[in-house]
Amino acid sequence: MTDSSDGAFPPGARVRVRRAHPPGHVRTPHYCRGHIGEVERLCGHFRNPEELAYGRADHAPLALYRVRFRQRDLWPDYAGAVDDSVEIELYEHWLEPAR
């Protein structure tokens, strides 16, 4: 399930969530789109919910990652501690490399 050798992004890689707004059943929360986080782990490979929602299951499973974001990067007015974080599950096609 957690084969870290089989994804484009290793743990620790910095990634940016695509700032896209496609219609349909999308499991990428709006609040993280366009933001940079760090890959915490590869969760495994799963079928794309954006396709499954329309009954299409004949596609290769996608890598699914847990990505850690600093709260202060997501919310400029975040009032909690500096190190506070959010971890979100994101499919590979929503991620691009970030510096």
């Binding site: 969760c43 799963f46 699914l64 501690a81 974080s85 959010v86 971890e87 599950e89």
Partner: peptide, 15 residues
């Protein structure tokens, strides 16, 4: 305590 990190886990997909 402010020195402890609060880490939120958003179950958005398959976990």
């Amino acid at each position: 305590a402010p020195e402890r990190e609060v880490r939120v886990h958003d179950s958005t997909a398959d976990m």
